[in-house]
Computed example of a mutant assay.
Amino acid sequence: MTEPVIRTASARQTDIARQADSMGVDEAFISDLVDAFYARIQADDDLGPVFEAAIGDDWSGHLVTMKQFWASIALNAGTYGGRPIPAHHKHLDKIRPEHFSIWLSLFRQTLQDRAPSPEAADFFFERAERIGLNFQNILFK
């Protein structure tokens, strides 16, 4: 029987950074991904008005938050300290379950256009799918 490997938080973060680097994922890519994705969101006939109602004119603030969120997901950066479910829950009068499939489709398209490698696209899309499913389960069930 093998002994479990116990790693420090620092060692785990180093492993995550190494894995991200091997896929071509860094903060510059995350910034580009978030900017391109939310440009698509704003232009979308279904999602644009929903996000506009929630965000208003503070797109720059939202983009900063989303970059922190995705850096925390992909790089274990620890820069995001928000609470996404309550932030979305207060807009349930505008959010519909079918919005999540549109959101996910736009995210996939953005990854196909921008990801530095197929592995990076898969890595982000898998997490986006999980996030979207979790949001739907919490918000609508």
Rank of each mutant, 00 (worst) to 15 (best):
Q13A: 12
L63Y: 09
Q136E: 08
M23D: 14
M66R: 07
A20V: 01
L47Y: 07
Q42W: 04
F123T: 03
H88D: 02
S10F: 06
G24M: 08
A71L: 01
K94D: 05
P86V: 02
V34P: 01
A39H: 11
F135Y: 04
A74Q: 05
D58N: 07
E129H: 11
S10I: 14
A9V: 09
T8R: 15
A20K: 08
R96N: 12
F69Q: 13
Q109F: 06
Q136K: 13
A28T: 10
V34E: 04
D46M: 15
L111I: 04
G24E: 13
Q42C: 05
P49I: 01
S60V: 14
M23V: 06
E119R: 12
I41D: 00
M23T: 14
R12M: 10
Q109D: 15
G56K: 10
A71E: 04
G82E: 05
P118V: 07
D113A: 15
I16N: 03
I73C: 12
D46P: 05
L47A: 10
L47K: 12
I55T: 04
G61L: 06
W103L: 11
I95C: 05
F107K: 03
E126M: 13
A36I: 03
A87M: 15
V25R: 02
G56Y: 01
E52G: 02
K94R: 11
W70R: 06
L33E: 06
G24Q: 15
M23P: 07
F37Y: 12
A54I: 00
F100N: 03
F123P: 01
P84I: 09
A115L: 09
A115P: 08
K94C: 00
D44A: 12
F107L: 12
A9Q: 10
K90N: 04
Q112M: 13
F29R: 13
Y38E: 00
L104D: 05
P97Q: 09
T110M: 12
R18H: 14
A87P: 07
Y38V: 02
K67N: 14
Q13G: 06
G78W: 04
P84S: 14
T79S: 12
T65P: 00
S72R: 00
P86Q: 07
I30H: 00
Q68G: 01
R12H: 08
R83C: 03
A36W: 05
S10Q: 15
Q136D: 04
I95L: 12
L63E: 08
P49L: 03
L106W: 02
N137K: 09
R40P: 02
Y38N: 02
N134D: 01
W70T: 03
I131K: 05
A17I: 13
A39T: 14
G132N: 07
T79R: 12
N137V: 05
D93W: 10
F124K: 02
R114A: 10
L104H: 08
F123W: 13
D46R: 12
A128M: 08
D122P: 13
A39V: 14
E119F: 11
D113R: 12
G48E: 03
R130A: 13
G78K: 06
D45K: 11
N134H: 06
H91P: 00
D113S: 10
H91K: 01
P97M: 11
I95N: 01
